[in-house]
Computed example of a mutant assay.
Amino acid sequence: MKEKAENIPVYSLHNFSKTEGENQQFQVEVFDANRHFAVKYPHRHDFYEVLYLAKGTGFHVIDGNKYEIKPPCVFFMSPGQAHKIEVSHDIEGYIFIFTAEFYLINKSNQNRLIEFPFFFTVQQDNPPLIFENEQDILFLETLFKKGIKEMEKVNIDTVELLRSLLDLILTSSALLYRSDEKLLKGKGHIVVKKFLQLVEENYNLNLSVAEYANKIALTPNHLTQTVTQLTGKTSSEIIKSKQILEIKRLLVHSNLSVTEIALRLNFTDQSYFAKFFKREVGVSPLHYRNRSLNG
């Protein structure tokens, strides 16, 4: 019997972090039987996950599909996917969890994440990547080990290195990943992927949920229900999350004034733009810029 979506908890990255605070954007660590957090299964994440398993047995259930764990293999999880995992006591591997903001903050291609074949798949099946080549295995393990070592001394420079290591993990995995075009397509997943692509392409227009729904030929309620069911977030939350990410990027990586950023993202009311950002982030745009630039 499938769990109802509203009964499945949605966790943020800080729920899986051993450090205090709620602003973590990434974590790289060993994955073994000693890794325990106070979370319920099944659950959803609002972040991405790359789980590499080198040893052990068990099962991983993702969106109702049950996969046998056959190391060495990698499971990829997108925000909103419901999953639960059952593993043997000798399980060994590595895990890299991260937010979209962490990966995309310096990317000119903001579609980058959803272009990976293992993220936001429109297929009903999302199987793991099985490794067969020893060199590929050693390369991936080296990237994870380097990431764990860098986590011990996180600063501005090492964060950039960790971001580069993640990019290598994802890019090299994508080259090996093979999707089966014969698998059935899930209509809900197609709607969600189309919505996410539209948000990536039109975030600068400051469109409403109704305007996005119209582009997909759905009612706003139907769109929001589908998106919430498959991601754990409402359509409005996803739109706002993308807008905030882009505002942060422009505040930190451009010389545009706050007014110019507001106009670029089609916020005609400067006062509302500042209030919107402060409500979502907790500080004003200028405060965020000064804090970020001063380390």
Rank of each mutant, 00 (worst) to 15 (best):
Q123F: 12
F118W: 06
L143F: 02
R163I: 02
I97W: 03
Q110F: 14
I137G: 00
Q123S: 15
K107D: 10
E115Q: 15
M151H: 10
F131M: 04
Y103R: 13
K145R: 10
A100Y: 11
Q124V: 11
Q110H: 14
N106H: 12
L165M: 04
V122Q: 12
D125W: 07
I97S: 07
T99I: 05
K145Q: 12
P117G: 08
E160G: 12
F118H: 03
F139Q: 13
E160H: 12
E141Q: 11
F119H: 01
P117H: 05
I148E: 08
K145G: 00
L143T: 01
Y103C: 11
F131P: 01
S164Q: 08
L165A: 02
I97R: 09
I114A: 05
P117I: 06
Q123C: 09
S164F: 12
F102Q: 10
L165D: 04
L138P: 00
Q135D: 07
Q110P: 00
I148G: 01
E141S: 04
I156Y: 13
D125T: 08
F118P: 02
E132F: 09
E141L: 02
Y103P: 08
Q124Y: 07
L140R: 10
I156W: 10
L140T: 09
E160P: 01
E115Y: 08
I97A: 06
N109Q: 10
E160A: 12
K146F: 10
N155S: 03
Q110M: 13
I156A: 15
N106D: 06
L140H: 08
F120D: 08
Q110T: 14
I137Y: 02
I97N: 06
F98E: 09
F120H: 05
I114F: 10
T142F: 06
L113P: 11
I130V: 13
L129K: 00
L113M: 15
E152D: 12
Q110C: 07
A100W: 08
T121N: 13
L140V: 08
S108C: 01
L143R: 00
N133S: 06
F120G: 01
E134A: 11
D157H: 15
L140C: 06
L166W: 08
D125S: 11
L138Y: 07
R163P: 03
P117L: 05
D125K: 05
E160V: 02
L129H: 05
Q123N: 09
L113S: 11
D157R: 14
N126S: 13
K145F: 02
N111Q: 12
I148Y: 04
K153D: 06
F119M: 05
I130M: 10
V122R: 14
E132D: 09
L140A: 05
N111G: 03
P128E: 03
N133A: 09
I137V: 09
I97T: 13
L165E: 03
E160S: 13
Y103H: 13
R163N: 11
L138F: 10
N126A: 10
E132C: 06
V122W: 04
K107E: 14
V154Y: 00
I137W: 01
T142N: 14
N155R: 00
L165K: 00
P128D: 04
R163T: 07
L138G: 03
N109T: 07
I148T: 10
M151L: 08
V154R: 12
D157E: 15
D136L: 04
T158H: 07
G147T: 09
Q135F: 07
P128N: 03
E150G: 01
E160N: 14
P117D: 04
F118I: 08
I156Q: 14
